[in-house]
């Protein structure tokens, strides 16, 4: 199936002529499709980015699932279940999009389970009170939307189409999260304290979701040229902050940054320098929940092995019966 997509030359051998022609297509805003010629590095970058995105959706189920059995009302339980289910669905579309580049699901998933592949560092933080279910929807899905809306116009066709589908569902995720925050922030003093606590813990990690600062981002330049990325990390982060500060004000909650201030000259909010060491440390695997998340994914996978084997064995027996008949 995928062999047609693999017509590009081996790594390092991409001829200048082909590269130039490819760049012309990109500059003309043509979408690149699985069967088209593409530079090795373009393919590799996309496989890395799309599979990381897929892994993030799958690992991202865990912190919210932590509250599903304790959701405080039937309505909240239903909404949260539906939201987490959407994320699993996003994982599926994204793995399929990555498969069109010639990478197998098995390989990608194995890389996640062994810790070789990365996923968004935000999911390595714990969800400690019910308002975290709100803060995740509001801030984490909110940040994801900023990224994903930008990716709807990414140059690789299957990725761009997956993002269009994903974005339709994401605004519901953010709304349900903000709705939880409204109820908590306008609730009893104890509820409000939970909301503030959740915001305090989620704010900085959600800003880190946009990745390193542009001056330190290793993958940015070429990705921009190939229109895989269309906005820089810092631009998207600023856009997110500008959109989110008024929402926090409406809630009557305080964003944990004493330097956060609207700048009349730039028309944007100024904010403190992010503690980048923390981001790099969590990416390296030293976040509060890295081990726990990986253990959970591995346990689910290992516990499910006999179930998958049973399904495969049964399907094969059914096939054999059909062939005999």
């Amino acid at each position: 199936m995928y062999s047609q997509g693999l017509r590009d030359s081996k790594a390092g051998e991409d001829s200048q002529e082909l590269l130039d022609a490819f760049q012309v297509r990109i500059d003309n805003e043509e979408k690149i499709e699985p069967r088209d010629w593409m530079p090795q590095a373009y393919r590799k970058t996309l496989i890395r980015q799309i599979s990381q995105h897929a892994h993030s959706e799958i690992v991202g189920q865990l912190p919210e699932a932590n509250w599903v059995t304790r959701a405080p009302t039937l309505k909240r339980k239903l909404i949260l279940l539906a939201k987490i289910q959407d994320e699993a669905g996003h994982g599926l579309y994204l793995y399929s999009a990555a498969e069109t580049l010639g990478e197998s699901f098995q390989k990608m998933y194995q890389d996640l389970l062994t810790g070789k592949a990365k996923y968004s560092s935000i999911f390595n933080y714990p969800t400690l009170n019910w308002a975290d279910a709100g803060a995740v929807g509001w801030l984490v899905d909110g940040a994801a939307i900023m990224n994903q809306v930008a990716l709807c116009r990414t140059s690789y066709g299957p990725y761009s189409r997956a993002m269009v589908r994903v974005c339709k569902e994401e605004s519901f995720h953010q709304r349900q999260g903000y709705d939880i925050m409204i109820k908590m922030a306008q609730g009893t003093p104890k509820q409000k304290a939970m909301a503030q606590d959740a915001l305090n813990r989620t704010w900085w990690p959600s800003l880190m979701m946009f990745g390193p600062s542009d001056k330190d981002s290793t993958h940015s330049d070429q990705s921009m040229k190939w229109k895989i990325k269309r906005f820089s990390n810092d631009d998207l982060r600023q856009k997110f902050i500008d959109a989110t500060v008024p929402q926090a004000e409406y809630l009557g909650l305080t964003i944990p940054d004493k330097n956060l201030k609207y700048n009349d000259k730039t028309g944007h909010y100024d904010f403190s320098e992010i503690i980048w060491d923390e981001l790099f440390d969590v990416i390296k695997g030293n976040g509060p929940c890295n081990q726990q998340r990986m253990d959970a994914r591995n346990k689910a996978h290992n516990d499910g092995a006999w179930v998958r084997e049973a399904a495969a064995a049964y399907a094969e027996k059914q096939n054999n019966r059909k062939e005999v008949a």
Partner: peptide, 27 residues
Amino acid sequence: AEWCGLGPFLEEDLALTNTCLDIIGQA
């Protein structure tokens, strides 16, 4: 709901959560 996110494989996880949603909706 205790299975949510922990099914034996991704498609099955989705399908079981779907069943769970229906049943809590009935509840």
